[in-house]
Design a binder for these strands. Sequence first.
DNA 1: TGATTTTCTTACCATAGGGTAATTTTTATC
DNA 2: GATAAAAATTACCCTATGGTAAGAAAATCA
Lengths: 191, 191
Amino acid sequence: MEELINKIKNNITLSPQAKEHIYSISKERTISKGEILIRQGQAVKKTFFVIDGCLRSYCTDKNDKEHTLQFAIKGWWISDFIAIYNNEPAILTVECITDSKIIEFNAKDLDEIHSLFPEFEAFQRKNLERHVVSLHKRILNQLKLTAPERYNLFLEQYPDIEKHTPNYHIASFLGITQQSLSRIRVEKARK
Amino acid sequence: MEELINKIKNNITLSPQAKEHIYSISKERTISKGEILIRQGQAVKKTFFVIDGCLRSYCTDKNDKEHTLQFAIKGWWISDFIAIYNNEPAILTVECITDSKIIEFNAKDLDEIHSLFPEFEAFQRKNLERHVVSLHKRILNQLKLTAPERYNLFLEQYPDIEKHTPNYHIASFLGITQQSLSRIRVEKARK
DNA sequence: TGATTTTCTTACCATAGGGTAATTTTTATC
DNA sequence: GATAAAAATTACCCTATGGTAAGAAAATCA
């Protein structure tokens, strides 16, 4: 829990009341590999902050193939923000991929926090700005890089994830099949 | 200018002083097709709100091939947010693709507006939330849809852009070549 | 440790989309 | 309206990645 408090304090001044409020609306949870936190098709009530471990969000297409939108590690937020924003059932599944420690919030509580404690607006805005920038980069990389280039970049950006998640999850994040990733890895090792 | 004011008023209560301030930091401009507003490699000082017309932002890869990150039409914001956020030279070029009317801001002024008039925090947060959701969708579509599917979706989502922008811009947004798009269009017409 | 399951690799062929270049069509300009 | 420029199409062949399937390796579990 301190991880989140510190993260907030890096951005805004946190009053004791606000801090108290955060405690009151959050729940620290330990979850294990394989647990599903949000399931495609169901209502999305929660948003998660990762203290330790790794989660991912993915959707499935008409052929049941999985496509990973996000890996979330220490210090990241994860949920189905599309569903929350549009107030629709989840199109994503959020899954725990290594035993993890998370903080759970009701999405509704997190939204209301801004009217209760307006100082959170700035915190949230900065989170969102950073998020937008990383999504812009992701889109540009997808457009301009080859699959091997994207894989190398992934290894730089998520050095820890690679150890814990199967290759087919990484492939589904990069937009290729696990077989292609396998070939890329062979090619890379050969050099 | 009223377009922007109304947009703001849809989200927050706008005090006369705040309104006055917006006028003081903005400049309405008419720009013509082909004008470059932000140039790759140069410092990014401005952010633009589109009143009418169409702009796009793109980057070029090592082979000088263009990749469109965004089309901005009436009511959208456009700039190189990656560069602004990281305080780096532009990696994007922002170009006017049909004669347009825009409102120009200094990115710095737009950032400072939040400390001067905290009521803007909520407005900006909501903008960013919407933006994040649309980027999530874009990434998922890129991962799970075929090129023809993405093109059809594009036509639904940007019915006006199609009329005004050359196909190779659309292709570069979809992540395919103009030749592929041409084939897709032929195939589509054949049905 | 042995059995089972999961993950990864490899091989084969199929296909979507790319690259170059020529041609046609459309749009802009004088 | 004639000319030039820009954009779109088409044709050809090529390459990267996909799909299926089988086998190898690694991880898990009893």
